[in-house]
Design a protein around this nucleic acid. Structure first.
Length: 482
RNA sequence: GGCCGGGUGGCGAAGUGGCCUAACGCGGAGGUCUGCAAAACCUUUAUUCCGUGGGUUCAAAUCCCACCCCGGCCUCCA
């Protein structure tokens, strides 16, 4: 293992050196559950899912923690607007999140803590901060005093003076410094609230990640991730809270993924976000594209780069995905069945002629998780497999080994996880069932045998209009959705 | 205003000092196969132009300077 990763703290690539050899703790800021997730959320989840898969493939014991923010202003607003208890709202969208993630092939995290289950831990940390003189009460709220935390601004590369001069925040009169942030909010009427030593209220946003990550990963751990927009102020504040409270260095590596942009009607590109209302939900997209296509779309750009979203680009990703599965389909036909991916660790297997491909894939992933380069290796393998499949004299073992490695590497990216037949047959919202399609194929076969090509072409055209593409081969005709 | 990123072919996207006359994918063109197709395969698609202009170097898409443009953060946001 020779992983280099870009640390937002310091803004440069560094070798991954773990606190405890062979073990990694990783915390990723999850979603606020008041609405369906959009493609921007999909990006974070897919990116960190891939990183976790890769770390595990490298033989590391990973503990992955991903939270749900299930109490905040927007949740309260939305729940009030719908006249339902906020828990009902958050449970609905936690459930929706899980469904979406499964479709995207995002594995469950080892821990998926909710903020409202950790009030005690948060209060403990706030109490610590007060006792250490880093937090103070004001108007019933508890604030963090940023200028009492020495290295405030280190992560985002800002200093307090710069921040203040550009501040757009309405200054709360109870704050000692405009940049101070709230740890505990005094309850307002009609808001959910919990008892605390400082009166009824609810936690501020930043404190949950500090409290929960420490609970499940300890007061020091290896990797903390999230979207680029969380870098400031969220992660900056998390550091101030956690290190302020524990007095220890907290996170070793900060990873931030870039944004998904959308093109506006006027052709401008802007960040996709809930507040701008310009988002595409994962759910809507899954109605038109298999989850793996969304994954390929996301991973075909480096995780730190901005990612432009459009349906044309998704179509291109689907064609690319089709190509990979076509190679599998061809090999399956030739081998009669697809080899099962071996359970053995990647490095221990003798991949014969394919050793170079594996090496290139691993080198790409080692370099700050360069998935675009890793994907390029997959496409090159697909091409070689296609070539071998078309060569009468090719070694069956070589094909088999290639397919096995291709699937094993692709699986690290969450790709090629299903059977090609299933892949090509899914999402045919044509009204035609498999049996109908097969019947039409039989009719067409009869017409072809009778050399009635006009009728055969008519049936093919009929199917095409229903979204089905036929592929004639010596062994028979197969179909896939167009 | 401050602070970060980024500008690579028709599109997306790697590459960040010599293997770059620039990976990979999508799209396009021609061909093989096919009754015709589709898929696949072969050939081709940036030939001193890697935003613009300077500079450093034996050598730059890659380093430095200036400029232009785009995006983000500085308020909730993945």
């Amino acid at each position: 293992m020779n992983i280099q990763l870009f640390n937002s703290m310091g803004r440069k690539k560094e070798p991954l050196q773990l606190r405890v050899a062979g073990q990694v703790g990783i915390y990723v800021c999850g979603v606020t559950v008041y609405d369906y997730c959009h493609i921007g959320h999909a990006r974070v989840m897919v990116v960190f899912d891939t990183i976790v898969r890769y770390l595990r493939a490298c033989g590391l014991k990973v503990t992955y923690v991903r939270n749900f923010t299930d109490i905040d202003d927007k949740i309260i607003q939305r729940a009030n607007a719908l006249h339902i208890p906020f828990q009902q709202l958050t449970e609905t969208f936690i459930e929706a999140f899980q469904v979406d993630m499964q479709a995207l092939g995002v594995a469950r995290a080892d821990r998926e803590p909710k903020a409202t289950d950790h009030l005690a831990e948060m209060q403990q940390m706030i109490d610590n901060l007060i006792r250490k003189g880093l937090a103070y009460p004001g108007g019933g709220d508890i604030f963090y005093a940023v200028d009492r935390f020495q290295s405030y601004g280190q992560l985002s590369g800002k200093n307090l003076a710069e921040l203040q001069s550009g501040s757009r925040v309405d200054v709360d009169t109870h704050k000692q410094n405009p940049l101070d942030f709230v740890l505990w909010k005094k309850a307002k009427p009609d808001e959910p609230h919990w008892p605390s030593p400082w009166g009824e209220g609810r936690p501020g946003w930043h404190i949950e990640c500090s409290a929960m990550s420490c609970k499940y990963l300890g007061e020091s751990f290896d990797i903390h991730g999230g979207g680029m927009d969380l870098l400031f102020p969220h992660h900056e504040n998390e550091i101030a809270q956690t290190e302020g409270s524990s007095g220890q260095p907290w996170v070793r590596y900060w990873l931030h993924n870039g944004f998904v942009n959308v093109l506006t009607d006027s052709g401008e590109r802007e960040k996709m976000s809930k507040s701008l209302g310009n988002f595409f939900t994962i759910r809507d997209l899954l109605a038109h594209y298999p989850g793996e296509v969304l994954r390929l779309f996301i991973l075909n750009s480096h995780y730190r780069s901005p990612l432009d979203f459009s349906s044309e680009l998704l179509d291109a990703a689907r064609h690319g995905m089709d190509r990979l599965y076509s190679a599998l389909a061809g090999a399956k036909k030739r081998l009669q069945e697809l080899p099962v991916a071996a359970a053995a660790p990647l490095d221990d297997t003798d991949w014969g002629h394919w050793a170079e491909e594996m090496e290139r894939f691993l080198v790409a992933m080692d370099d700050d998780f360069n998935t675009p380069q890793a994907i390029a290796v997959l496409f090159e393998m697909a091409k070689q497999i296609n070539r071998l499949v078309a060569t009468e004299t090719a070694s069956v073992q070589e094909i088999s080994q290639g397919v096995q490695l291709l699937r094993q590497l692709a699986a690290l990216l969450g790709l090629l996880t299903t059977d090609p037949d299933h892949y090509f047959h899914q999402l045919t919202s044509t009204g035609l069932g498999d049996a109908d399609i097969d019947a039409l194929i039989q009719q067409r076969l009869a017409a072809r045998l009778a050399r009635n090509f006009q009728e055969a072409d008519r049936i093919r055209q009929q199917l095409l209009e229903a979204g089905i593409v036929l592929q004639d081969a010596k062994e028979g005709t197969t179909w896939r959705r167009s």
